[in-house]
Amino acid sequence: MIQVQQLCKSYRTNDVLSNLDIAFQHEGITAILGPNGSGKTTLLKCMLGMVLPDSGDIRINGSSILHKYNYRDQVCHVPQTPHFPENLTGHELIQMVRDLRSGVTRENDLIQLFNLKHELDKKMSRLSGGNLQKLNLLLGLLYDCPLIILDEPSTGLDPLSLQNLKAWLLQERDHGKLILFTTHIMSFVEDIADHIIFLLDGTIYFNGQLQELLRHEQEEKLERAIANILKPAL
């Protein structure tokens, strides 16, 4: 479905992605992990067209997405830090996304899932950090897209909302969606990810199943396995 080919991106003298080659062929949940500055967010931003690569290509369903925007109709995105216009309400933001996209929305299910019914009339400046993140998830997951990209989706969520988010994502996976996410919460990865890509200095250090990584690092918990990888790197 997605092919990342020889992708390079550097900011001035800092090489963030170096000749990255990845293919996401099937549905499922893939966690993109790595230390700070390893290129996780840059990779996702390249897929969304926010960051333009220096060289290489990204193809979705066979077509290059570079300098295009129509393909984003098929991509749902939940960004990392939600700062929406502070004088708009949740209802107005939902209406804005509806104006910008086409298709059937699932807002009622998501409002119920994240218990947002009483928050949608409030201005953004009056919402708490947790509710802002829930609204961010609602807006990102509003449409039924085959590809879902989430950047640190669990930040600021209470345990119930986190549990509901996991259940929603697993359900989406069962409906044949491809879900890519980044996080630093390893228990979240253990609970939902089928596949792990570990980036280190802009290249792929590991690309495989969770169990393979644990076997490779001879650990039982993902957190310790990741720490083992990072110790020599740091």
């Binding site: 926010m50 984003r72 960004p79 700062h83 929406f84």
Partner: peptide
């Protein structure tokens, strides 16, 4: 907000 809009078609 710009990043949020950039993810839209």
């Amino acid at each position: 907000y710009i990043q949020f809009l950039l993810a839209q078609p």
